[in-house]
């Protein structure tokens, strides 16, 4: 039985890749989309490896490991509005910090 390991790896990687990219375009949460994008990019790097271009694979990881966090940051800034705005327990509802501000020069 001669298993074509390359083909098997290719198929596994492409399934991951297509699944990941579908998740990117359908994800409800922005940060999830970024996570799936990271997976997609790393698996595309894996395909580069199959095409014997290790250098490109490493550059792909290096560049996108730097670029994806920026996307992440953006996603965080846009999506985690909820915990930034929600009132923490024990907080005065009409706006904390009002009292000491009144008499400020």
């Amino acid at each position: 039985m001669a298993v074509d390991w390359q083909l098997a790896a290719f198929l596994i990687l492409s399934v991951l890749e297509i699944g990941g990219s579908i998740m990117v375009v359908t994800a409800k949460k922005l940060v999830h989309a970024v996570f799936w994008l990271a997976l997609t990019l790393v698996t595309i790097g894996g395909i580069y490896l199959l095409f014997l271009s290790e250098f490109l694979f490493l550059i792909q990881i290096l560049v996108y490991a730097g670029a994806v966090p920026v996307l992440f940051l953006f996603g965080i800034m846009l999506t985690r509005r909820k915990i930034m705005e929600e009132v923490t327990p024990g907080e005065v509802l009409e706006g904390p910090g009002e009292a000491p501000r009144e008499g400020l020069p």
């Binding site: 579908i22 375009v25 922005l30 996307l71």
Partner: peptide
């Protein structure tokens, strides 16, 4: 086939999604 599929998915994202960040990610794809 793989690259066509990826391209189609990316194109779908660019055309359908409203969120600008997702569109940017689709362009990456």
């Amino acid at each position: 086939i793989l690259s066509t599929a990826l391209f189609c998915i990316g194109l779908y994202g660019v055309m359908v999604r409203k969120n600008a960040i997702i569109v940017l990610m689709s362009i990456e794809i």
